[in-house]
Nucleic acid binder design. Sequence first.
DNA 1: TCAAAAGTGTTAAGTTTACACCCATGA
DNA 2: TCATGGGTGTAAACTTAACACTTTTGA
Lengths: 225, 225
Amino acid sequence: MNDYYSKNPRFYVGIDCIIFGFDKKKLSLLILQRNFEPAKGEWSLMGGFVQEGESADEAAKRVLQELTGLKSVYMEQVGAFGEVHRDPGERVISLAYYALIDINAYDHELVHQHNAHWVDVNELPHLIFDHNQMVEKARNAMKQKASCAPIGFNLLPELFTLTQLQNLYEAIYGESIDKRNFRKRIADMGFIEKTDKIDKTGSKKGAYLYKFNDKAYRKDPRFKL
Amino acid sequence: MNDYYSKNPRFYVGIDCIIFGFDKKKLSLLILQRNFEPAKGEWSLMGGFVQEGESADEAAKRVLQELTGLKSVYMEQVGAFGEVHRDPGERVISLAYYALIDINAYDHELVHQHNAHWVDVNELPHLIFDHNQMVEKARNAMKQKASCAPIGFNLLPELFTLTQLQNLYEAIYGESIDKRNFRKRIADMGFIEKTDKIDKTGSKKGAYLYKFNDKAYRKDPRFKL
DNA sequence: TCAAAAGTGTTAAGTTTACACCCATGA
DNA sequence: TCATGGGTGTAAACTTAACACTTTTGA
């Protein structure tokens, strides 16, 4: 009867995390220089395996938390990678997820234990298996999504200057944006709120700090950058 | 040593196919009224399981071929569906793929054997498990992709009229398009070639048949509809 | 002869891009 | 006082959207 299932093989289902951070003008990824087998010494994404009793999304959150200590992070599934020999050790079908985190807020101790490092997304080393492919696909998916939904804010602190926001989008798109046009679009959207606080770390004059107003966004969710 | 893998559980990995077809003015899906367990009698997507020695993409092609007899069909992965109890029978992590086929060219006998039927994508019945969700996600992914890459032609015969092409895009987008603007865009792209053949099935006057010129497209791959 | 689909250009509206200077401040 | 980043508006170029009539032919 349950031949329907049991005549089929079962597989390890892996999780791999493309963890984006943003600092100054650069998008970076948090990657591991593996101090464990397999592929010890090489660079890889943070990974893990789906366990019984947890969904794929939950597994991805858990794996991310194991490295960063962070809960409730913005994550999106990139897709399944299922080539037969993608992992030379065993047949593993892996689900890639990208995560957007504030590069100033994570557990440094945990990251240190895993021998993980931030690396400029444009200067990535060779990664094991098909991890470079996963990164490529994640970058495209993220870029696409960031252009039409307000997910970029997950890479910034709660308060940010418009220059920081512009630098972020320039990094995501890989091209520079006209300052006045950028600020016009921000103003048009109407849910990026000026606060009365001023940041003086970036310039002598100081720049107003803004914040993303989620409630205002949901009232009129038009986003285009 | 290979504790690294073996301490983790393994899972059935399913494949589910969202098979799009286009007829006259309607997008349809090929779905099964199951004459087998589990969920006998209910509607579902065509599915199967990944096997040893085949990649996920290969499994998807095989499953599609089992139903339609077609090889080398345009398919894209939609994503992995990994909720713990999504399949009440067993823990199965499923990969959804959509396929675009010419509704006039498939193996009717096979389709009949599987008790499969074409159903208007806007009038779908309730499908088992999370299959309606898969369809929703596939429709969005397909719409997005169809707007910026010439994948729509996979749903048409090799030769088609501009009215057919317009009807197709209207069905994909779920909105009507101005005929003159549409034809202007087609002309601008330059790789949709007029033939000297005429189709007289759609009108008394007859309409020129066109074909997609892949070579010309690759020379200057700009697509926007 | 008439119903039904094919085919064809122009104009207005809206959107996007390009562009340059003054301001405030700390070193 | 000057070097640095912050802040601001307008006009031209381009793109998109709206719109209506003639043609052909089989029934």
